[in-house]
């Protein structure tokens, strides 16, 4: 049986709702990882991904096969993550002592060294701007080309290249600062 994204979507559009679980299984974990790094905590990330899948399902009729489904899904995810991040920033301003940071908590079960690395990674990412973080993750972690990033984010290629460059510079500064301590 053809299990490509396009074939699965066809099944869903033809009424096989359960086939959508194939796409959920295929992309959920991967995009939770992306969302965790983007929004900074696991709870919001899973909510964003859940919401993304639901919105994608409702809009599935408008999906065009010439576009990679994963990229289409990622575009929805990025938009949702931006909204959540913006809400998080407002929350942070209102309740600075209640900022949720579950990445270090999630790492508690790991050896101390690993937990420290994760904490360092989360801290470094949190210190760069949302746009830069988004561009960095899409390019270096998700492996998207600048053309693909432009399609996902709606930003121009030149702007994206600049964000990636600046994010690298800033992250290097942050990481070298940590290593010197």
């Amino acid at each position: 049986m053809d299990t490509s994204d396009a074939a699965v979507i066809r099944r869903v559009l033809n009424g096989d709702v359960e086939a959508y679980s194939i796409l959920v299984e295929r992309y959920f974990d991967h995009y939770v990882r992306f969302a965790v790094h983007l929004v900074g905590n696991r709870e919001d990330a899973e909510e964003v991904v859940q919401d993304t899948f639901l919105r994608a399902y409702r809009a599935l009729g408008r999906y065009e096969e010439r576009e990679r489904f994963g990229a289409w899904l990622l575009r929805i995810l990025v938009n949702r993550a931006r909204t959540v991040s913006a809400m998080g920033r407002r929350r942070e301003k209102m309740f600075p002592d209640q900022v949720d940071d579950t990445l270090p908590e999630a790492a508690e079960a790991h050896p101390a060294e690993r937990a420290a690395l994760r904490e360092e990674v989360a801290r470094a990412l949190s210190q760069i701007g949302t746009d830069q973080r988004e561009a960095f993750l899409l390019h270096y972690v998700e492996g998207l080309s600048y053309e693909e990033m432009a399609a996902v984010t709606g930003s121009g290629i030149s702007a994206l290249k600049m964000r990636v460059k600046r994010s690298c510079e800033r992250l290097r500064e942050i990481l070298q600062g940590v290593n010197r301590v």
Partner: peptide
């Protein structure tokens, strides 16, 4: 969370394909 997605999906109407899709 994955199960929850599918629970919510089942509550939605089956999406209708537009001409383009």
């Amino acid at each position: 969370a994955k199960r929850r997605v599918m629970e919510l999906v089942r509550e939605c109407p089956v999406p209708l394909a537009t001409v383009g899709a």
